[in-house]
């Protein structure tokens, strides 16, 4: 069929500047959000796996539940916080890529935290005595466990990436889908759908899926390499 696939291909082949800009912004926003979520979520998840404190169970349940946070709600929360009438309004961040990064970070942080906790907890059960014997306390064990759990953790990071790259609800609200400024692949798809331009919408969807596929393949390859190389 020469419908969406042909459109997708000719869009890519044309190297259309607006499209490249949209793809670039999508990647920038999503990868930044994944990075931020990892910087916060990996140590937090590991700490949650090793620490024992009252209310720990409640915190774990909360993060597990937040994995199902609707993107629109995450977007709304960030919107209200960043709005000029909100508590952080003076930062003038609403309708900027930074706001989109914040919203997506919020969205995928629970995934990273929950999966990290689960992976590190299992690993700690296996490693605890050996690490204590080697002279590593709980605190020192955190980076060790994160590094040794890297292949499993990668799955969690990819899940976060998938959620961020696929969602439209949060970025639409806090980004505003401004042409040339905060328009991403997903908000562009929404726009084209609303214009009844379904063929173009599907073509953009194919491009997005191809990007996601490429990144996942690369991550999977890296994971396999790490398994072979580092056990």
């Amino acid at each position: 069929m020469d419908g969406p696939f042909a459109t997708a291909f000719s869009l890519i082949a044309s190297g259309d500047a607006a499209l490249m800009q949209i793809i670039g912004l999508s990647l920038r926003v999503t990868l930044s959000a994944v990075l931020l979520a990892c910087l916060i979520g990996l140590p937090l998840g590991a700490a949650l796996a090793l620490a024992r404190f009252p209310g720990r169970g409640a915190v774990i349940v909360m993060f597990n539940a937040l994995m199902g946070l609707p993107p629109v709600v995450a977007g709304l929360v960030v919107y209200l916080a960043l709005s000029r009438s909100g508590p952080l309004g003076s930062l003038a961040l609403l309708f900027t890529p930074t706001a989109m990064i914040i919203a997506q970070t919020l969205l995928i942080l629970p995934i990273v935290v929950s999966l990290t906790r689960s992976v590190v907890e299992d690993l700690w059960a296996e490693y605890r005595e050996q690490l204590l014997s080697l002279g590593a306390g709980r605190l020192r064990a955190v980076p060790t466990l994160l590094w040794d759990g890297r292949v499993s953790l990668l799955t969690g990071v990819l899940a976060g990436f998938g959620r961020a790259s696929a969602e439209v609800g949060a970025v639409l609200i806090v980004g505003g889908n401004i042409a040339g400024h905060t328009r991403t692949m997903t908000t562009a798809i929404t726009l084209e759908t609303n214009r009844g331009n379904l063929g173009l919408a599907v073509a953009l969807g194919i491009i997005l899926l191809t990007l996601t596929l490429t990144l996942n393949a690369a991550a999977w390859g890296a994971g396999e390499w790490a398994k072979r190389r580092l056990g």
Partner: peptide, 8 residues
């Protein structure tokens, strides 16, 4: 990581 942070 640093490169990505810069990008962001």
């Amino acid at each position: 990581t640093c490169a990505l942070a810069l990008l962001a």
